[in-house]
Simulated scan of single mutants.
Amino acid sequence: MRPQSVILPVALVTLGMIFTQLGASFAKMLFPLVGAAGATTLRLTLAAIVLVTLFRPWRHRLSPAQWRDVLIYGGMIGVMNLLFYASLTYIPLGIAVALEFTGPLAVALVGARKPLDFAWIVLAFAGLALLLPLGQGEGDISLIGVALALATGVCWAGYIIFGQRAGTGGGPHITALGVAIAAMIALPFGAATAGTTLLDPAILPLGLGVALLSSAIPYALDMAALPHMPSRLFGILMSGQPALGALSGFLILHEKLSPWHIAGIAAVIVASLGATVTIARNAPPKV
């Protein structure tokens, strides 16, 4: 794979990351109204409606193997979102994003071969350690929230792997199917906790904004990019998520950044950029 051939996929993934963190910040506004599961349901259901309407997946036929990958891909999206939003009820957004990053980082570790690749991974780990506000007198971190965020990371790893498999030879209709499956998984949990509040006209515009920013646009961009880039590159690119989450929290939620946070952000950004350059250069050609 030539370095030039990953420029567009890298740009699409980066744009999707920005939208994701903006959506996560806005989603916190829904928690007092519909709860974490309700916010997840609104996000995925509205995103599914938009994607299915635009890409009309019923016009495409899938093989049994592709259906299997799409079902797992959609399941990963649904469970990942439920777990992530649930974790936000126990721990801050920046910590949750940092902990869930263990999933894509594990994908990166599996494929790493050259010493320089491991150097970027070590740098990303150091940045994540600096982003965790441990020992700073800000209160204890809930073990329940930590466990939920780490479980989110496992689903994120599955999202990367099965998203690449399902998207190979496919198109945006695969994303529409995956998000629709995810919405069906989340719907019973949202209905049980929020009930008819999910249909409140005053809430729907914010829910739609979160759906577009957090699900519809990023998943479509990821699906367009994943078949054209190594999963290892995608995984290490995701190291920018904690940095973007912290920046989004600062700009939208007015969360202050400590010097440790700034150092952590710098570390993960350097790791992401360095990994992008070296892995794009060293990746074997596709056949």
Results as ranks from 00 to 15, higher is better:
Leu257His: 01
Gln21Ile: 01
Arg68Ser: 13
Ile121Leu: 15
Gly153Arg: 10
Met184Ala: 15
Gly190Gln: 04
Met229Phe: 05
Leu212Pro: 00
Ser239Asp: 03
Trp156Tyr: 14
Arg43Lys: 12
Gly74Val: 00
Met80Asp: 06
Met29Gly: 13
Phe162Val: 00
Ala98Cys: 11
Leu204Cys: 03
Pro218Asn: 01
Lys286Asn: 06
Ser87Met: 10
Pro230Asn: 06
Leu51Ala: 14
Val268Leu: 04
Gly94Ala: 12
Gly158Phe: 08
Ile77Met: 13
Pro115Asp: 11
Gln164Pro: 03
Leu51Asp: 08
Gly207Val: 07
Gly74Trp: 02
Met238Ala: 15
Pro201Asn: 13
Leu44Met: 09
Leu253Phe: 04
Ile160Lys: 03
Leu62Gly: 04
Leu128Arg: 02
Val210Pro: 09
Ala112Lys: 04
Val122His: 06
Gly23Thr: 01
Val50Ile: 15
Leu51Ile: 06
Ala186Leu: 00
Pro57Gln: 14
Gly190Trp: 00
Arg61Trp: 04
Ser258Ile: 05
Met80Asn: 10
Asp222Pro: 06
Val179Gly: 01
Ala182Tyr: 01
Glu100Pro: 03
Gly195Ile: 02
Ile185Asn: 03
Gly249Glu: 01
Arg68Gln: 05
Thr40Asn: 09
Ser25Cys: 09
Leu143Asp: 08
Thr102Cys: 14
Arg59Val: 08
Thr53Met: 12
Ile217Thr: 06
Met184Cys: 14
Ile252Thr: 11
Ile174Trp: 08
Thr20Ala: 11
Arg59Lys: 15
Phe26Glu: 04
Phe189Ala: 14
Val107Pro: 07
Thr175Ala: 15
Met17Gly: 09
Gln66Thr: 04
Ser239Gln: 12
Val287Ala: 13
